[in-house]
Amino acid sequence: LPLEERVTHFRDMLLERGVSAFSTWEKELHKIVFDPRYLLLNSEERKQIFEQFVKTR
């Protein structure tokens, strides 16, 4: 999958899993780590997309 598509899937997962915009990566990790979409991005990309996600929520 192209990166753009993987990012979209990852963001959808964050929304569906009820990730809080007022929380930290560490506190929200347990909600998403077992979702197959979690593995679409490498660890650096995951954290970066998470940070963007919480800023725009």
Rank of each mutant, 00 (worst) to 15 (best):
L1M: 03
P2D: 15
L3T: 12
L3W: 12
L3Q: 15
L3N: 13
E4V: 06
E4I: 09
E5K: 06
E5M: 10
R6Q: 02
R6W: 02
V7G: 08
V7W: 05
T8D: 07
T8W: 04
H9Q: 14
H9W: 09
R11N: 09
R11T: 11
R11Y: 10
R11Q: 10
R11L: 08
D12R: 10
D12N: 10
D12P: 01
D12V: 04
M13Q: 06
M13H: 02
L14G: 02
L14K: 01
L14R: 02
L14F: 01
L15E: 15
L15Q: 15
L15P: 06
E16F: 05
E16R: 00
E16A: 07
E16D: 14
E16G: 01
R17L: 09
G18Y: 02
G18E: 14
V19L: 00
S20P: 06
S20H: 01
A21Q: 10
A21W: 05
F22T: 13
F22V: 07
W25G: 01
W25A: 05
E26K: 00
E26W: 01
E26C: 14
K27W: 02
K27N: 08
E28L: 07
L29D: 06
H30Q: 07
H30V: 05
K31M: 06
K31F: 05
I32F: 07
I32C: 07
V33H: 14
F34R: 14
F34V: 12
F34I: 14
F34L: 13
F34A: 13
F34N: 11
D35M: 03
D35R: 07
D35P: 03
P36D: 05
P36M: 00
P36H: 08
R37L: 00
R37S: 03
L39G: 15
L40W: 04
L40R: 00
L40Y: 09
L41W: 01
L41V: 10
L41I: 08
L41Q: 07
L41A: 03
N42V: 00
N42P: 06
N42F: 04
S43N: 08
S43F: 09
S43R: 11
S43G: 13
E44H: 08
E44P: 05
E44G: 11
E45D: 09
R46N: 07
R46G: 08
R46E: 10
K47N: 06
Q48E: 13
Q48G: 10
I49G: 04
F50E: 03
F50L: 08
E51P: 00
E51A: 13
E51V: 03
E51K: 10
E51M: 08
E51T: 10
E51W: 02
E51R: 05
Q52D: 14
Q52H: 08
Q52V: 06
Q52E: 14
F53P: 02
F53I: 04
F53R: 01
F53E: 00
F53V: 02
V54D: 09
V54R: 09
V54G: 04
V54C: 09
V54S: 11
V54T: 12
K55E: 14
K55C: 08
K55Y: 03
K55P: 00
T56A: 13
